[in-house]
């Protein structure tokens, strides 16, 4: 036997679910229309290409990135993620193959610049410019 309270609880759940779906749809649509998803993907691909390029360098070197447009970055072992915040539904993600044996797990929250460097056959990512020998 159903009570009146059951109906209103179901309605509440439906309302929350529909708001959630609407928020997701609008959020992804807005990021598409503003081109931010392509901007994030562009930055992710650019950074991944830089890691690949430095990995093919016979010696040491570094590349400074200043045009990051206020996005946050996460470099893990084989991919780079570009996003506005951790709840971002449309992250820019691209894969790379790094050289060396050290594990890569660097997070940067809206950095002003990021420096990707290859020193002693290892890829290192910092906000400061390294000193090369």
């Amino acid at each position: 036997m159903k009570k009146r309270g059951d109906v209103s609880l179901r309605f509440l759940l439906e309302l929350v679910a529909s708001f959630l779906v609407a928020y997701m749809a609008v959020s992804v649509s807005v990021s598409y229309t503003q081109g931010t998803i392509f901007e994030k993907l562009h930055i992710a691909k650019d950074l991944a290409m830089q890691i690949n390029a430095l990995s093919s360098l016979p010696g040491d070197g570094y590349i400074i990135n200043t045009k990051l447009y206020g996005y946050s970055l996460h470099f893990s072992d084989n991919k780079v993620e570009v996003f506005e915040d951790s709840a971002d539904l449309s992250k820019g993600v691209y894969y790379f193959v790094k050289i060396g044996s050290n594990r890569l797990d660097s997070r940067f929250s809206k950095p002003k610049q990021v420096v990707i460097s290859k020193i002693n056959n290892e890829i290192i990512i910092t906000e400061e410019i390294p000193v090369l020998k």
Partner: peptide, 30 residues
């Protein structure tokens, strides 16, 4: 509609990635 407007931003030149990997095989002492 937006795919046609902005997707060119995230395209990288074809063969660039392949070129970089081949250079790695031939240039890196590792």
């Amino acid at each position: 509609f937006s795919v046609y407007d902005g997707s060119y931003l995230s395209k990288i030149p074809p063969d660039l990635e392949n070129y970089l990997f081949v250079q790695r095989f031939l240039n890196s002492n590792l």
